[in-house]
Amino acid sequence: MNRIPTAPLLLGLAGLIPFVWGAATYLNGGLQAWGASHLGPRFVGPYVQLFYGSVILSFMSGVLWGFATKTSGSRAATGYALSVLPALWAFFMTGGGPVSAGMNLIFGFAGLLILDAAFSAWGLTPQWWMRLRMLLTVIVIACLSVGVFL
């Protein structure tokens, strides 16, 4: 079964809202002003993306840890070690201003996709996992790129 189940697909797409919102408020001054006045300045532009991106990389570390529990021996040890990398990356690499933090999050999400592929190749993920992760990662990187490259 390669079809992404409805619940993970909808929840994954809903999880993109802060990234898309951040890009939209970066590109539209009126929307940014409205968001800043109604939600607060930390919930617009790159600021919401950077904070939320760090949270999601940490969350994904937990997901990978869960996949590592499905194996044993040296592969499990490798899986556990690799699973903490996204959270550590978010912790150490998202300071220094919005452009460098955004670029580091782009690298973090690209690296996470590589880890997803490894866990998938090891047979630890659902068959549809890479389809979902590719879709979500492309959108996340596109949204983060707005604050980094524009």
Rank of each mutant, 00 (worst) to 15 (best):
M1D: 11
N2E: 12
T6R: 09
P8V: 07
L10F: 13
L11F: 15
L13S: 10
A14E: 04
I17H: 04
P18H: 09
F19D: 09
V20Q: 02
W21R: 02
L27V: 02
N28A: 06
N28T: 02
L31M: 08
Q32W: 00
Q32T: 01
A33E: 07
G35F: 02
A36T: 13
H38T: 10
L39R: 00
L39S: 02
G40M: 04
V44T: 15
G45E: 04
Y47S: 11
L50A: 07
G53M: 10
V55R: 06
I56Q: 10
I56G: 09
L57K: 09
L57I: 12
S58A: 15
M60C: 11
S61F: 08
G62T: 14
W65T: 08
T69C: 00
T69F: 04
K70Y: 04
A77R: 08
G79N: 03
A81H: 00
W89F: 06
W89E: 06
F91H: 07
M93W: 10
G95I: 00
G96S: 09
G96I: 14
G97T: 02
S100W: 12
A101N: 05
A101C: 10
G102Y: 11
I106D: 04
G108Q: 08
F109D: 07
A110T: 12
L113E: 15
L115S: 12
L115G: 13
D116C: 06
A117N: 12
F119V: 06
W122E: 13
T125V: 10
Q127E: 12
W128R: 06
W129C: 14
W129Q: 11
M130R: 11
R131P: 07
L136M: 13
T137V: 13
V138E: 05
I141P: 00
A142C: 09
A142Q: 04
L144S: 03
L144H: 06
L144W: 06
S145K: 11
S145C: 09
V146D: 03
V146W: 02
